[in-house]
Protein backbone atom coordinates (compact mmCIF):
# COMPACT_ATOMS: atom_id res chain seq x y z
CA UNK A 1 0.00 0.00 0.00
CA UNK A 2 2.78 2.38 0.94
CA UNK A 3 4.54 1.59 -2.32
CA UNK A 4 1.36 2.21 -4.28
CA UNK A 5 0.66 5.55 -2.60
CA UNK A 6 4.22 6.60 -3.28
CA UNK A 7 3.79 5.61 -6.93
CA UNK A 8 0.71 7.79 -7.40
CA UNK A 9 2.46 10.80 -5.90
CA UNK A 10 2.08 10.85 -2.12
CA UNK A 11 5.12 11.69 -0.02
CA UNK A 12 6.16 8.30 1.42
CA UNK A 13 6.79 9.85 4.86
CA UNK A 14 3.06 10.39 5.28
CA UNK A 15 2.14 6.76 5.73
CA UNK A 16 3.37 4.73 8.68
CA UNK A 17 2.57 1.13 9.40
CA UNK A 18 4.21 -0.12 12.57
CA UNK A 19 3.66 -3.02 14.92
CA UNK A 20 3.72 -1.83 18.53
CA UNK A 21 2.72 -4.07 21.37
CA UNK A 22 0.73 -2.84 24.38
CA UNK A 23 3.81 -3.11 26.56
CA UNK A 24 6.01 -1.00 24.30
CA UNK A 25 5.05 2.44 25.61
CA UNK A 26 8.39 4.02 24.77
CA UNK A 27 8.32 2.68 21.20
CA UNK A 28 4.83 4.13 20.76
CA UNK A 29 5.90 7.53 22.06
CA UNK A 30 9.02 7.56 19.89
CA UNK A 31 7.05 6.60 16.80
CA UNK A 32 4.41 9.28 17.42
CA UNK A 33 7.13 11.88 17.88
CA UNK A 34 8.92 10.76 14.75
CA UNK A 35 5.74 10.90 12.66
CA UNK A 36 4.82 14.32 14.02
CA UNK A 37 8.24 15.72 13.29
CA UNK A 38 8.28 14.35 9.76
CA UNK A 39 4.78 15.58 8.97
CA UNK A 40 5.61 19.04 10.32
CA UNK A 41 8.55 19.16 7.96
CA UNK A 42 6.32 18.22 5.01
CA UNK A 43 3.57 20.69 5.82
CA UNK A 44 -0.10 20.10 5.09
CA UNK A 45 -1.05 17.47 2.53
CA UNK A 46 -2.52 19.00 -0.61
CA UNK A 47 -3.22 15.80 -2.46
CA UNK A 48 -6.77 14.47 -2.39
CA UNK A 49 -8.03 17.51 -0.54
CA UNK A 50 -10.35 19.05 -3.13
CA UNK A 51 -13.36 17.04 -2.00
CA UNK A 52 -15.67 18.45 0.61
Amino acid sequence: MKRLLEYVGFEPERLYVKWISGSEGQKFADTATEITENIKKLGPNKKMRDAQ
Binding site: E6, V8, G9, F10, E11, K47
Partner: peptide, 10 residues
Amino acid sequence: SVAEKNEFWE
Protein backbone atom coordinates in the same frame (compact mmCIF):
# COMPACT_ATOMS: atom_id res chain seq x y z
CA SER B 1 10.08 12.74 -8.08
CA VAL B 2 7.01 12.87 -5.86
CA ALA B 3 5.84 16.04 -7.62
CA GLU B 4 6.28 14.54 -11.09
CA LYS B 5 4.40 11.38 -10.18
CA ASN B 6 1.66 13.42 -8.62
CA GLU B 7 1.35 15.56 -11.72
CA PHE B 8 1.32 12.53 -14.02
CA TRP B 9 -1.46 10.75 -12.19
CA GLU B 10 -3.57 13.79 -11.40
